[in-house]
Simulated scan of single mutants.
Amino acid sequence: MAAPMELFCWAGGWGLPSVDPDCLAVLWGSGAPQGGGNSVVSPLGYSVGSKRVFALQKYNADYDLSATQSADTLAFVSLLEEKLLPVLIHTFWVDAKNYVEHTRKWYAETIPFPLNFFLPNAMHKRHLERLQLMWGDDYMEDEEKLEKELYREARECLTLLSQRLGSQKFFFGDSPASLDALVFSRLAPLMKAKLPNGKLQQHLKSLQNLCNYCTSILSLYFPWDGGESHPLRYPAGLE
């Protein structure tokens, strides 16, 4: 077996093992399949605070997908990145009420002194620039127009995901694939965060199968830490 790999990720909170979507995707989508019987083999290995230790395995979550399912994966990944990611950035980092009362507050309370004084604002600026690259200056200058378009497309994206999932356990049946890791990592923070302005969150919570999907993944694959707030270890480049 290959030597363990260490991943330093953002701390857990809001009932999640990490509040960062990219960390969530890696944490859940990094390895082994589900075990048989009543037991579950977590793909994560084990955790020490927010340092995750992985035993790398020769396992490809998409190995058994058909050509059609692989094409569907590419289509839905593109949909998530184009239609859902921009509104998640807006919801957590641009919406003034959410940013001040929820996002900045959490990071300022979690990041140790003295970084908590400037790092949240630096992240805020970086996310603004990212959204500007996605949508252009015209939309960024018209906040009402930007918000209207963002949330319309995001609601459509969530509805399509709900229709595609249907009553299945995962998007391609009884076994998870890479698409499940990506979808879960985008939906779980939106579902679990206590947002003052939760317009898109309300739409997600009306899609019961998507909420059940996220809850099931949390209970199956993260039963031991359930999002407890661990001492923060910074992602690469921030230590």
Rank of each mutant, 00 (worst) to 15 (best):
E6T: 04
G15A: 04
L16D: 06
P17T: 05
V19L: 06
D20P: 04
C23Q: 03
L24P: 03
L24G: 05
V26I: 10
L27S: 02
G29Q: 08
G29I: 10
A32P: 00
A32F: 01
P33Q: 03
G35M: 09
N38Q: 10
S47P: 00
G49A: 03
V53G: 00
A55C: 03
L56F: 05
L56A: 11
Q57H: 07
K58V: 10
Y59M: 10
A61G: 02
A61Q: 05
D62N: 14
D62L: 11
L65M: 13
L65F: 02
S66Y: 03
A67Q: 09
A67R: 09
S70W: 06
A71G: 06
D72K: 11
T73W: 02
T73G: 02
L74V: 12
V77S: 09
S78L: 12
L79N: 07
L80P: 02
K83M: 08
P86T: 11
P86L: 05
L88M: 15
V94C: 06
K97Q: 12
Y99F: 15
E101A: 13
E101C: 13
E101H: 11
E109I: 07
F113T: 09
L115H: 08
N116C: 13
H124D: 11
H124I: 02
K125C: 09
L133P: 00
M134N: 03
W135Q: 01
E141R: 08
D142S: 01
L146E: 00
E149Y: 01
Y151S: 01
Y151W: 03
E153P: 03
C157P: 04
L160F: 12
S162V: 07
G166D: 11
F171R: 04
G173D: 06
D174T: 13
S175T: 15
D180N: 14
S185G: 13
L187Y: 04
L187P: 01
M191Y: 10
L195E: 04
K199M: 10
H203D: 09
N212I: 10
N212K: 15
Y213Q: 09
Y213F: 15
S216W: 06
Y221L: 15
P223N: 14
G226L: 13
E228M: 11
H230D: 00
P235L: 15
G237D: 15
L238T: 06
